[in-house]
């Protein structure tokens, strides 16, 4: 089992992901620069958070055309796994690997705070170690995190059990009040039709050690590891 963490100009959560995977979980992981095309050695590709290409034009819009994204297309076509976190989620939607789009938060503000999210299904490579309705405390840090899609797409995501996380309050109530950014149907993370590509706005890599404020992020990475056990 080998992980790649992609590095775009402006990625800034790449080292956090690398640290959580390598030093906390003991996983074999490499950084892969955006100019490389070869991802054939990897089982799981992580697209980390940050501001790739300065978020110019739209968040994720320019990164989508990096050479490494051609390698990612091939990786996904061959059945490889990919997880986009925050800016990585934005890149995956821009690239068409995930439906919908991430637009500016309803409040117009950059939000950096703990969020509570509820696993919606155990049938995904990011939630297999979560119980359905498990509540995870995982921080968000974004200005463009409001998930939007047309009603048909939202219905399809629900029908196909492809919403993996929804924002909720500390008690697990999924409500407007617990929706930090205005995302449609409180969506915090989704998975592709193939169930091998996932995107989420919260940052699990930031909460993998109690010393850093929590360890709920581990559940997500341990779910990914479970695929290979």
């Amino acid at each position: 089992m080998k992980f790649a963490v992609l590095v775009f100009p402006g990625s800034n959560c790449d080292h956090d992901c690398y640290h959580a995977l390598k030093h906390v979980l003991g996983i074999s992981v490499d950084f892969v620069w955006h100019g490389d095309r070869d991802l054939t050695r990897y089982d799981v590709v992580i697209l980390p958070g940050g501001f790739s290409y300065g978020d110019y034009l739209r968040a994720g819009a320019i990164a989508r055309f990096s050479d490494v994204m051609k390698g990612l297309d091939q990786h996904i076509r061959k059945g490889g796994y990919a997880l986009g976190i925050c800016n990585g989620f934005q890149i995956l939607t821009e690239a068409g690997h995930l439906p919908g789009a991430l637009i500016q938060n309803r409040s117009t503000k950059f939000i950096c705070e703990d969020s509570y999210i509820k696993a919606q299904t155990g049938d995904s490579f990011v939630t297999s170690k979560c119980g359905v309705d498990d509540i995870l405390k995982i921080p968000i840090a974004h200005k463009e995190g409001c998930f939007v899609a047309d009603e048909d797409t939202l219905d399809q995501l629900d029908r196909e059990n492809r919403v993996v996380f929804r924002y909720c309050d500390q008690e697990g109530n999924v409500s407007e009040l617990a929706n930090p950014n205005g995302s449609a149907r409180n969506i915090a993370g989704i998975i592709s039709e193939s169930r091998r590509v996932a995107g989420m706005m919260p940052h699990p890599e930031r909460v993998c050690e109690e010393e850093l404020g929590g360890s709920h992020g581990l559940t997500i990475f341990q779910s990914v590891m479970e695929v290979f056990n």
Binding site: I103, Q104, R106, S107, T108, V148
Partner: peptide, 14 residues
Amino acid sequence: TLKPGVLDTQGRAV
């Protein structure tokens, strides 16, 4: 331009 119906937070603030 944003499609009709897509929340335009900048537009609302202005």
